[in-house]
Design a protein around this nucleic acid. Sequence first.
DNA 1: TTAGACGTTGACGCCGACGTCAGGACAAGC
DNA 2: GCTTGTCCTGACGTCGGCGTCAACGTCTAA
Lengths: 139, 139
Amino acid sequence: MRIGELAARAGVSTRTLRYYESRGLLPAADRGANGHRVYGDDALRLVAQIRTLQDFGFELEDTRPFVECLRAGHPAGDSCPDSRAVYRRKIAELDELMAELRAARDHLTAQLARAEAMPPPCGAGGAGGGRGDVPLCGG
Amino acid sequence: MRIGELAARAGVSTRTLRYYESRGLLPAADRGANGHRVYGDDALRLVAQIRTLQDFGFELEDTRPFVECLRAGHPAGDSCPDSRAVYRRKIAELDELMAELRAARDHLTAQLARAEAMPPPCGAGGAGGGRGDVPLCGG
DNA sequence: TTAGACGTTGACGCCGACGTCAGGACAAGC
DNA sequence: GCTTGTCCTGACGTCGGCGTCAACGTCTAA
């Protein structure tokens, strides 16, 4: 299987596959006499593993233990301790991030409620009206 | 007030202030005879507004309505309808993002539990052991 | 007069995961 | 020979928000 076929079957671009190779994630099994990359069927699983993890927000580097685990012949990318450690780290990161987002969301909600409780500004909008003017209503 | 003083008082770099100006967010009130930027005290409030919103995850462009609202003379950055619309959009974005993250988190947690329920691989670790070998235990 | 602290503009660097050329090689089919 | 299709390598572009450097002008204190 050459790079074009693997790309088509995996649903990624050839550029993506070459990029993975440049990162040491997915070296071609071999090179043909013409220099073309040659892949085995297992490469398809490796790409699928990478894409799955990326869909969950993994950076490319975080997929490495999973890919190496598969390449070592293990039945699944997460069969190895290193992979599971990444799982745990990612879950912790997500928890932390979600806590931050929740805090931000709550704060914004409070701000919005407070702002909407204020009397409406008169010349408001895109601030295109009275530049530098006093915002008070006509008195 | 020149750029250095404003930067120090606002806790940002002069580069940051020039960048804001280049984006049309924070034009200097004037230029001295030597070409130096001159700011009024109100600039400090504008920078503070920008940084506050950025801390909540706003992109620079999303702070624009707030800054323009302040520049128009309104008492607060969120006194204008445009600003409040951004609040609402941001809250919705946060809700959507958090839902995605929750889904990812739940999936990862399930995957981790499933992986840990499996028998431990023998040559596991960094996959540095038996390259391409069968992962089954000795027998 | 000179040093040094401040200011100016312009331009490149960075991160991540590629997209998109540019320029060339090689094979198959007409 | 020519086109078409696939492949190769190398290198620049993208996005956001600046950091950092270059090369220069300006103001002030000693």
